[in-house]
Simulated scan of single mutants.
Amino acid sequence: MPRSNRRRHDSSGDDSFERLLAGWKRTEMRRGVEWTVQPVSPAQAQKPYTCPGCGRQIDVGVAHLVAWRADGVMGDAADLAARRHWHQHCWKVA
C-alpha cells in the first residue's frame, strides 16, 4: 500500500501549539521593568491593533509582537490582561 505524505493531526492539539509558542517568548528589561515579549507571525495576526509606540494601526497579516509586564506587580492575570501589541520597530526604540 502506498505511503501517505500528508501530516497527521496531532491529538494533543492546542497543547503542542502552546509549547511551540512558549519557545518564542522571551523576557526583556525596559526602563527598569521586566517584560515578557512574544512575536506574532503574519499568519497569527488576525485582528487589527493600535500600537502604543506610534499610535498607528497594526493591520491584519502584519508580523508584530505582544508585550506585557513580567514582574507580577498586579498579579499575573492583570499583567496578561494589560498586554499590548507593538510594531517590532516601535518596541525596539521604546
Rank of each mutant, 00 (worst) to 15 (best):
I58L: 10
T36A: 02
V66H: 11
V40A: 06
K47A: 13
A45S: 15
C90I: 03
A67G: 12
C51W: 08
E34F: 00
G55Q: 02
W91M: 05
D71R: 02
A45V: 01
A77H: 07
R8I: 14
P39N: 09
V62M: 12
V66Y: 07
G23R: 15
A77Y: 05
S16W: 10
H9I: 12
W24A: 14
M1Y: 03
W24M: 11
D76F: 10
Y49D: 02
G53T: 08
R3H: 11
E34L: 11
R30A: 12
R31K: 09
K92H: 04
G61H: 04
E28N: 02
D15Y: 09
W24F: 15
H89R: 09
M74N: 12
A43I: 03
R26P: 00
A82M: 08
V73D: 09
E28C: 03
N5V: 04
R56Q: 13
W35I: 07
H89D: 14
F17M: 11
D76W: 10
T27Q: 12
D76N: 11
G32F: 03
L21H: 10
H64G: 07
A78M: 06
D71E: 13
H89C: 01
A78Q: 08
G53P: 08
F17K: 15
M74K: 11
A81S: 11
I58D: 04
H87V: 01
L20V: 05
A43C: 00
E34G: 04
Y49S: 06
C90S: 10
W24Y: 15
V33E: 15
A22D: 12
R7L: 12
P2T: 13
L21W: 08
G55W: 06
W86F: 05
A70K: 03
H64Q: 04
L20P: 00
S41A: 13
H85T: 04
V37A: 02
V40H: 03
E18Q: 14
A94I: 03
P52T: 06
H64T: 01
V93T: 12
